[in-house]
Amino acid sequence: MATSTLTDTPAPPPAPESHAPRRQRSLRYWLDFRAAPYAYVAPFFAVFAAFGLYPLIYTGWISLHEVELGTQDQRTWVGLDNYTTMLGDDRFWKALTNTFTIGVISTVPQLLMALGLAHLLNYKLRASAFWRVAILTPYATSVAAGTLVFALVFGRDFGMINWFLDVFGVSPIDWEAGRWTSQIAIATIVTWRWTGYNALIYLAAMQAVPNELYEASAIDGASRWQQFRKVTVPSLRPTILFTIVVSTIGATQLFGEPLLFGGTAGARGGTDGQYQTLGVLLYQQGWGLFHLGRAAAIAWAMFLILVAIAAVHALITRLLRRA
């Protein structure tokens, strides 16, 4: 995903050959020079190898077997069966669609609102620190705590939103049971938690937009709105693209919100799987139904989807830079 940014920053100049006479360099210097970088990155790779890579490869191996959670020592080689089962299962496609739709209805309004809020926060404000802290507060709330509150607020019989709608004569909505209503409710939780955060990211990028650009457009007689559209947004393009990618990755892995929002039906993503995401499907297959092999196959499918997203991002970045 961030491959493009790698080539972006100037690489450090080659070894300082020109600075010091070669002879003065001892073995120590050479060792330090050669080996130290590896020692510095070693902790990451060591921990990752033990607790990330090993389980990951092992999971790949598991995905080619029929394995049950309770009897992991008995494995039957099934080749790609778990993958064909997955692709032939309506629920996989449903979960994929749901992941996509929840992703869209949580990411798009979230980033648009964040952009708008950032624009407002960029004005000279009274108590500017207060506004920033206030909109960032949901970020400190965990998925579990946030979802518990929203599940009550969106309740069918005694929820606050239905009570509020009732005041205006709208009959109560069974938020959890409907496909769109449940997805909107879940997207609301996601939006609530991340809008402020993204707004601050945008705000930071806005403050880095050079003054001259605004001055130039002011001379051209641009209004505030035109400035926003013609100066701010184009300057923020890389940041916007980046937040889209990060939000997309988050949306692809969406798990805790639908699981906890659904109460006892959470693991199947609602009675009809109306808000089951890929993450929840994986959890249901592996830890609800104990089919570890199938869960592993879904995990790898999610991984491939993320790789595809990264590739698309890299492509777009490249095109943007050319343009």
């Binding site: 990451f44 570890l292 592993a296």
Partner: peptide
């Protein structure tokens, strides 16, 4: 190596839980 580091970010956290 840096690409590897970044690549690991894309692995869903649920992936390796069983062997782990």
């Amino acid at each position: 190596l840096l690409m590897l580091v970044i690549g690991t970010m894309m692995v869903p956290p649920q992936l390796g839980v069983v062997p782990l």
